[in-house]
């Protein structure tokens, strides 16, 4: 199958995602320049991390108006898998593909460290390789990852089981201390109602090889591949 990694001016995890997909997950992958108008021929899209447009104005706010975005939105509407990581998540929020918004981290500082993440569902195209309630160790690296939404939205996310990943302690509890940035309900990653658009702040591409200290993140890429190739285990 073929992945597309969308490159915005200021994206900086594009090469990292490309590397994992090609060299670790062994799949076809191509960059998609933000000025392209279509995403034909791709089976899944990744909006990588970084600082598109310098994070100026609001994170993701300018990238959301890139020429490629209408095609990305159309791709998502038709059910194609879209993963937004970190800045990619922020762009998906600005584009309205996912609900909510990002605020600055509670600490007001950029945070780069490895956190515990609980997998809340395994019957999705992004998590079928994991066990329910499995705890993943995945790095975060962001200054604005404090997920916010109003109570109605939160209730909808909960009712529809859209909260895929939550920050937790080593026992899997969603404690205040385990919440690195102040996100509502310890939210680290959510999917849309249809279940084909994932936004997450942690960086799975940074922990997909043992030499980097762990490969807990690889499952997300492999899950999508399995799902696309119709061998989903569920």
């Amino acid at each position: 199958m073929k992945f597309g990694v969308v490159v915005f001016p200021g994206s900086n995890c594009d090469a990292d995602c490309y590397h994992v997909i090609r060299n670790v997950a062994q799949q076809d992958v191509e960059y998609i320049w933000h000025q392209q108008h279509d995403v034909k021929g791709f089976d899944a899209l990744v909006l990588p991390g970084g600082f598109s447009y310098g994070d100026y104005l609001r994170t993701g706010a300018i990238a959301r108006f890139s020429p490629v975005m209408p095609a990305v939105i159309e791709f998502a509407r038709r059910g194609g898998p879209v993963i937004g990581i970190c800045n990619g998540f922020q762009i998906l929020l600005e584009a309205g593909l996912l609900p909510g918004a990002m605020l600055r981290n509670r600490s007001l500082t950029f945070i780069c460290e490895t956190v515990n993440l609980r997998v809340n569902r395994t019957d999705t195209m992004f998590t079928n390789r994991y066990a329910k309630d499995q705890i993943l160790q995945i790095p975060i690296a962001h200054g604005e990852g404090n997920y916010y939404c109003d109570n109605d939205t939160l209730k909808r996310l909960q009712d529809n089981q859209q909260i895929l990943f939550t920050y937790c302690d080593s026992e899997g509890r969603e404690t205040e201390e385990a919440n690195p940035n102040g996100s509502v309900a310890n939210i680290a990653g959510i999917i849309n109602e249809q279940g084909n658009v994932l936004g997450m702040m942690p960086h799975p591409e940074r922990c997909s090889e043992p030499i980097l200290g762990g490969s807990d993140g690889l499952g997300i890429f492999l899950s999508v591949i399995d799902w696309c190739q119709g061998v989903s285990r569920k």
């Binding site: 447009y53 310098g54 100026y56 104005l57 300018i62 108006f65």
Partner: peptide, 10 residues
Amino acid sequence: DPQGEAVSRS
């Protein structure tokens, strides 16, 4: 004003 410049270009 890097922000302003980037927003202006966009």
